[in-house]
């Protein structure tokens, strides 16, 4: 039984439509690409698709109430919801420096989450 999977190559703006033939969970053939980046992309995306995650965490004392954060490395695509949900239940305290570690091993992925901006405290109202 051959399973067909369609992907769009992100190797360049061409966006070649790739078709993967899968047999027993293994890639048998990749077609549709116009350069060799297409094949490599297809293999990575099929065997271990990963995504960078950026979202915000709560920072009630900050100049803004949300602090933007990101994973320093991509996480497995199917773990993205878990990563985001973990971060959305987090609360941090200002001041924050850009690059500061917010959470290590987020949702068991082994990936670290850092702040993507510095966030001073909200100044006291006059």
């Amino acid at each position: 039984m051959v399973e067909k999977i369609n992907l769009t190559c992100l190797g360049c703006p061409m966006g070649c439509p790739l078709q993967l033939s899968i047999v027993d969970g293994e890639i048998r053939e990749v077609t549709g690409y116009e350069c060799k980046r297409g094949e490599a992309y297809a293999k990575q995306e099929y065997t271990d698709p990963r995504r960078m995650v950026s979202t915000t965490v709560s920072c009630p004392t900050g100049l803004w109430p949300r602090l933007p954060v990101k994973t320093v490395d991509p996480v497995p695509k199917d773990r993205v919801p878990a990563v985001v949900q973990t971060l959305h239940t987090l609360e941090v305290k200002a001041p924050i420096r850009m690059g500061q570690i917010i959470l290590e091993n987020v949702a068991g992925t082994g990936v670290t989450v850092i702040a993507t901006r510095s966030l001073p405290e909200m100044p006291e109202a006059d």
């Binding site: 695509k77 199917d78 993205v80 919801p81 985001v84 949900q85 959305h88 239940t89």
Partner: peptide, 11 residues
């Protein structure tokens, strides 16, 4: 915001 809602699970 409602942080109890799980993010989109189309993934």
């Amino acid at each position: 915001r409602d942080d109890r809602i799980a993010p989109g699970d189309g993934l």
